[in-house]
Design a protein around this nucleic acid. Structure first.
Lengths: 144, 144
DNA sequence: ACAAACTCGGATAAATTTATCCGATATAGA
DNA sequence: TCTATATCGGATAAATTTATCCGAGTTTGT
């Protein structure tokens, strides 16, 4: 469904959000350990999340990544997915046609559209804060 | 969403179904031209569809691919997707965890599950016959 | 029996995604 | 100012997906 880069990006952002709620900055090393991801690859993903203003990064000693409090309930899964995988997964045609629309639909168009719309809606209504809170409450689990 | 191999596989099967409704066998070359796919790559995909009993292949002169009439309304999109991409897209965890379930859910688990279930339901209730009929009626389009 | 028209399947190659390495640069603290 | 600790970012490598090539085998029709 999502690329590995995107999976890592979501996990990382959730972890950063949780720690930022506790006013703690986290290092790349810490993140990669927590979410069990390759460290250097994770660095690239975090860079791109930072460039997209989803997280903030600080260089140097005591540096690391954090999320601004304002962003807790502003950033959604959609922001992350869009930044890493682009919008193809919830906007693109199921058969890969570039010119597929209601006027000239591919055979799967209408069946697919409602699923894509649901997916998009889910992504854009799920905030990082919700995800973090669930984990804090023990309702869901990031680390296995 | 789906791999390119899977997209080609769906398009090819729909085309084969349409021609089989007209009692015509189609060659690899004809299929690849119609669905605008790389011919040799398409051959591999057709081989795997044939091995999964979704289509039948015949070697030699006048050979090619066809679908048995019985299969028109038996084969669904799910059969094709399962044969080519596996079941991960509608069964797998959104964050890639292998041990993600209602008892130990990942942060996206429940939001995702309903979408995956919808996707699976759509795939397993859409038959090749329906797709072919829509095209025959001019309601949808395979060739652009 | 032979030739033409096909698919099969193994070996490669190209493209993309995932992953690693490392020097450059920035920051905190002694 | 110096050192330890971080991220940044460019180069490279490994793995996977996509795509190509071609000889072998099969079938039809002559």
């Amino acid at each position: 469904m999502f690329s590995k880069a995107c999976e890592y990006g979501i996990k990382a952002t959730v972890h950063i959000c949780i720690r930022s709620q506790q006013h703690e900055r986290v290092s790349l090393k810490n993140i990669a350990e927590k979410i069990d991801s390759p460290i250097a690859f994770t660095a690239k993903i975090l860079q791109s999340l930072a460039k997209n203003d989803i997280i903030n990064s600080s260089k140097g000693a005591k540096g690391g990544y954090e999320m601004s409090e304002d962003n807790f309930n502003k950033i959604t899964l959609l922001d992350i997915v869009k930044a890493i995988d682009g919008d193809n997964i919830y906007n693109g045609c199921g058969l890969g046609y570039k010119n597929c629309n209601a006027k000239k639909p591919c055979p799967m168009h209408f069946q697919f559209k409602s699923i894509r719309d649901d997916l998009k809606k889910m992504l854009e209504t799920t905030t990082l804060q919700e995800l973090a809170d669930d984990i804090n409450e023990g309702t869901s689990f990031l680390v296995r």
